[in-house]
Nucleic acid binder design. Sequence first.
DNA 1: AAAATAAGTTTCAAATAGTGAAACCTGCAA
DNA 2: TTGCAGGTTTCACTATTTGAAACTTATTTT
Lengths: 268, 268
Amino acid sequence: MSAATSDGTVAKALEVLDLVAGHGRPVRFSDLLEQSPYPKATLYRLLQTLVSQRMLAFDPDRASYSPGIRLVRLAHVAWQQSSLAPIARPYLDQLSAEVGETVHLAQLDHAQVLYVDKRNARDPVHMYSQAGKVGPAYCTGVGKAMLAHLPQERLPEVLAQQSWHPFTPKTVTTPEAMRAELEQIRARGFAFDDEEHEPGIICVALPILSSRGAVLGALSVTSTTARTSLAALEELVPRIQSIAQTIAQETETWRFPEEDKTQPRKRA
Amino acid sequence: MSAATSDGTVAKALEVLDLVAGHGRPVRFSDLLEQSPYPKATLYRLLQTLVSQRMLAFDPDRASYSPGIRLVRLAHVAWQQSSLAPIARPYLDQLSAEVGETVHLAQLDHAQVLYVDKRNARDPVHMYSQAGKVGPAYCTGVGKAMLAHLPQERLPEVLAQQSWHPFTPKTVTTPEAMRAELEQIRARGFAFDDEEHEPGIICVALPILSSRGAVLGALSVTSTTARTSLAALEELVPRIQSIAQTIAQETETWRFPEEDKTQPRKRA
DNA sequence: AAAATAAGTTTCAAATAGTGAAACCTGCAA
DNA sequence: TTGCAGGTTTCACTATTTGAAACTTATTTT
């Protein structure tokens, strides 16, 4: 959470932005003051700057701050360009239709899992509000699938940033145990989540890897112990595998078309 | 575009962020250099900061910058809290089903129209990538509907920021003409777009107003001259009106539930 | 109604962080 | 080898940021 305390004013402003966004509701100045390491005046000025930049919105009636509309704009582009979601969309639809279970597409952000897209078993409508959530890496299928294929040198750092909170009795709670499991996951090519995050919830997950082996993201099919078993989910592996590969290929293939440099671009 | 050249480092960093995002594709350093007002070293450092903050991603192979994954995270919250989209969703679905035409939900960002949600006549799936786009205010139905209800004192500034580009022969291209039309729109309560942005495209739009008359957003139904007429669209006004009112009411009603202050919140 | 307390805003000298011209790399092409 | 474009680093100079404290409202309390 705290991240780099080193970077400068921009980092501070962004930290405040995260703080406001992290609340999930409008926040008042004094609440922020409690939670931020900055003195009153500094925080006050940072907030002012963010508001004047429309990254935050201030509601004078309720005297509270919320994320601003400019973020929505930026987000559109980030989503389109920096996530696998647009490329993976048709394949998620396909997979979802085939297996009829919840499907997740995730990427790694810092040391956490960021769900960038999702298909629900019952309601296959793709809603943005269902993506964008973050989750722990050490106790989710997609998380472990990605950790297993991280470059060796990054692993210690990332493992150190996990909370190792025992969500369920089955949660793996030590880096050592995790390393062993990751080894296994790497060897067999897929990961399970055996009720490690929520009781009754199980899943199979596969990494999406570039041709050079870099982790691009992960794909998972989730269900419940009431409806199915790990063994049954394992049967889906080849299908998920093939889709993961297709997505990886498309990601690498889809270079942006050559820019037309004859005309300088204009803006309204 | 240039906005406040006054604000400080944060503003500069955000301007660079916009610049990268505005490209819609990975951009190289030298391209950015051309387009930004900053000297090499400054731009370089700003980019470094943004990358280290994960607001931008740098691809070493292609030596280019793209919007970063942290934006996607922030976006989720911004979308949920700072746009009318989540509240309006069911009503958009309803309206879309009833009229069978394209429906837009927009808000005003700076002096531009930001589409925060959309329903398509054919494909009613709600995809994030279709929202988040921006458009001009002076030649779209939603734009004019919102401008018409802006506080008097803000109007000159906002009108001054329009490009007045004549997209079609029917585009209104002067602030004076626009003022007259806005008067009319305010009086009758709704706006048309009579092929002012794209030939063949017409729409009716209504503002979404708070109980105190503040502009919250706008709602429109769009079609083509081939399929319908302005007169026919006008018949939808009462229905759209009622939905706009419902959305406004819900927005004002939906205060966040009282926070439980007995327990300090924790974070994994 | 006055006093007390809390919540939010402004000030200003000191400290820090940001600036950008210019020098310096580093591949790549001639 | 030389030239050169794209990119990175340096460093003295400057402007911005900092935060304790003083100051203004609002909100309670007595």
